[in-house]
């Protein structure tokens, strides 16, 4: 299978998963590009021991988390720069709003709010929650994707739900 065929088969999987992490089309497209470029150059490292989609999920998750980390680093740097240079526009320029095209308009505000709290979860809890709730993956499938045990995923998912509930509850009073 060449890259174009791979792209046509898996583009929506990669794009939608990236969208769950970054919540805007521009960034999700950038991640999708990175994923396929990375697949093109590391195709020879793929071992047939796991399914190709599992490998694809792993690459997309890693690229998305790397992207978020880089964005945070950039934000921190922009903040430091803005302390020294009043004129710095980097901080304003980097900010991207919640713009998930898969959200129904009437749910937009509530979904943006829940994603705001999901973003505050540790990366592994966030990933498990996204795979389970958005990608509709079973615990067994998540365990295979993340190369972890069933028990570990079950506990991560439970912790993610509890932490999210705490964050949502503590924020209720401020609305």
């Amino acid at each position: 299978m060449n890259l174009e065929e791979l792209y046509n088969t898996h583009k929506n999987l990669v794009f939608n998963l990236a969208l769950s992490y970054v919540h805007n089309v521009q960034d999700a497209e950038e991640i999708t590009q990175d994923v396929f470029v990375s697949i093109h150059f590391s195709m020879h490292t793929f071992k047939a021991e796991s399914k190709f989609t599992t490998w694809m999920y792993r690459i997309t998750i890693n690229k998305s988390l790397d992207f978020i980390k880089a964005r945070q680093r950039k934000k921190r740097f922009a903040f430091i720069t803005s302390l020294f240079y009043e004129d710095s526009s980097e901080l304003k320029h980097d900010h991207r709003d919640f713009d998930h095209p898969g959200v129904i308009l009437e749910n937009k505000e509530a979904t943006a709010r829940i994603f705001h709290f999901i973003d505050q979860l540790p990366p592994n809890q966030k990933t498990v929650l996204i795979l389970n709730k958005i990608e509709q993956k079973s615990i067994n499938e998540i365990a295979e994707i993340l190369n972890m045990s069933y028990k570990a995923i079950e506990s991560l998912l439970q912790r993610a739900k509890t932490n999210l509930a705490i964050k949502l509850k503590s924020n209720e009073g401020y609305e």
């Binding site: 990669v14 794009f15 095209p101």
Partner: peptide, 10 residues
Amino acid sequence: LLEQLNRVEA
């Protein structure tokens, strides 16, 4: 709400 998200075409 998360489960209700629509799939988007790239």
